[in-house]
Design a binder for these strands. Sequence first.
DNA 1: TCCAATTGCTAGAACGTTCTAGTGAACGAG
DNA 2: CTCGTTCACTAGAACGTTCTAGCAATTGGA
Lengths: 341, 341
Amino acid sequence: MPPTPAVPHGKRPTLADVAARAGVSTALVSIVMRDAKGAGAATRERVLEAAREIGYRPDTRARLLRSHRSHLLGVQFGLQHPFHSDLLEGIYAVAEPAGYQIALSAVAAGRGEQRATDALLADRCEALILLGPQAPAARLAELAGQLPVVSVARRLRGTAPGVEVVRTADDEGARQAVDHLVALGHRDITHIDGGRAPGAADRRRGYRTAMSRHGLADRVHILPGGLTEEDGATGAHALLDATPLPTAVLAFNDRCATGVLDTFLRARVSVPDQVSVIGFDDSHLARLAHINLTTVGQDIPRLAELAVGRAIARLEGERTPTDEAVVAPHLVIRGTTAGPA
Amino acid sequence: MPPTPAVPHGKRPTLADVAARAGVSTALVSIVMRDAKGAGAATRERVLEAAREIGYRPDTRARLLRSHRSHLLGVQFGLQHPFHSDLLEGIYAVAEPAGYQIALSAVAAGRGEQRATDALLADRCEALILLGPQAPAARLAELAGQLPVVSVARRLRGTAPGVEVVRTADDEGARQAVDHLVALGHRDITHIDGGRAPGAADRRRGYRTAMSRHGLADRVHILPGGLTEEDGATGAHALLDATPLPTAVLAFNDRCATGVLDTFLRARVSVPDQVSVIGFDDSHLARLAHINLTTVGQDIPRLAELAVGRAIARLEGERTPTDEAVVAPHLVIRGTTAGPA
DNA sequence: TCCAATTGCTAGAACGTTCTAGTGAACGAG
DNA sequence: CTCGTTCACTAGAACGTTCTAGCAATTGGA
């Protein structure tokens, strides 16, 4: 049986209401609600009882208006990125036990990053965690001038001083993918890249250097792509138009790889018999059995932990020089890679 | 060139700072910032200039602490539901132009619905929009006693008085799917259901009545399922074990249907040649060309518009009796349905 | 010309918390 | 018995806004 709220709508109970009912001062109620020391056991019980009876809940906005600390971490994420959802799960899991609340702000169709961060700032977040931000480095630097900022999955090489970076070693991931393909016997490996997307430049570079290291510098072939299925499909079409096909394709991410798979399927190009395909992210998509994509997995719990950790460290006064935290990826071999025909 | 913030960290500029710089009272700055009337053109400009110079931003928490209205809508959503992401896009698009802000609270692995709604209440939201809530009706009724509550995609027949419901006509959607299959010549149509998931009961019922209406009551076959790929795969395995196969499968949603497709693919059961498959939601997944799933589409923009609209209507004092808003779905025919072999 | 209405602005009290600085009372040590 | 300490508690001032009055100057109608 849910406790019937004493006050139906509109007015919610306040500290003063509880105080009146328990016959104590508001200050004491505040102490009890925060579980701070300075209240006797009996009174404490009486106050809690009163609070329960009238259905009191502390008002976080008023609370953090007064206390200088807000213990609020603002997180900006993209609604259409499953990868961000996964990161958010991890972020909640780390932040709440550490005593920090999360304020979310989504980037969506008619709602750009500026709008998203503005909302977070207006909410008095103490620090910002930006998932794959696309904003210009100058904007990030500006934000970092106001509060600690952590960029996840977007590299910023000195262009945005003060911004903490947490990212996967994208170049290393691309290298693992190429190594795997070469070990299978592939030599003609095309990379459909991510354009200006976060991480794309590193993956491109990792692909290039890995190819060179295997003596395949002259076989480097990069097609412009992007981070959606459509980008992958476009890239695959370009490959089909300009025969001969490579024997393997390294796509920017899983969504892109899915577009590639799809296009090949419709063109009756068999994967992995004729062409091997590798994605990046190890998203849910990749794990679906009938996609069953070989991919480079990111260590999401670790990324989340680091992101929250860096933000909190900066808040608690740590003054380490800005520094990148780089997390190693790992290849997940599934069914879309095999030796060349 | 971003404006250099006068105050580096910690202290953010307040109304008082702007007032001092512009040589006016804080009240007047407040007026200007809210774009309210009561300030002269020249002073208005001077105040805005001062605000810009020191990088002032209004503090929403303090703002809504004072004003009784908060114009804040709390939205609870599931991180792992692409359908919720789509709804959120629509909700932002409707709410912000209407002058309402959105506070998000996610349901994730270690963070149940209670936690999610508690956070929203503590943030002083004026109304709650719950996407596919799973909480017991009693809990929803309790919430509805405190503030307007809109449940999206979860039907509540009188069990939670005061809760507004916005939903798709799930039974109608299932009917459309069955009609389509029957028109193609199918008679053995199995439904893999959604168990206790929101909407599942209606889809089940729609399937049943549609079958009856076509004189196929004795062919009704319902397998227990759920809302993930895994549930679909489990159902499909059950079908494979108990031959003969039906000629068509209606899955609870697109993810479930994807699991079915996958299992069939691995068992070398050809879709749609041997078995037709229909999903529900018309998610991004269904649109992927190599999934290319025939599915029942929900009118997401309309659902979002209604959800926000009902919440706002209740807030602005409308006292219409609680009532369901039901949105018609529409069949999207793609490549996973054809006539039976 | 005089009173009313309008305009442009300000002082000061809210809002619901937390924090600082107390006040008594009880206690233990000398 | 006296003094310092601890303990349980309270009064009242913040925090950064908005809101209600109200004031002085200007305008306008008769």
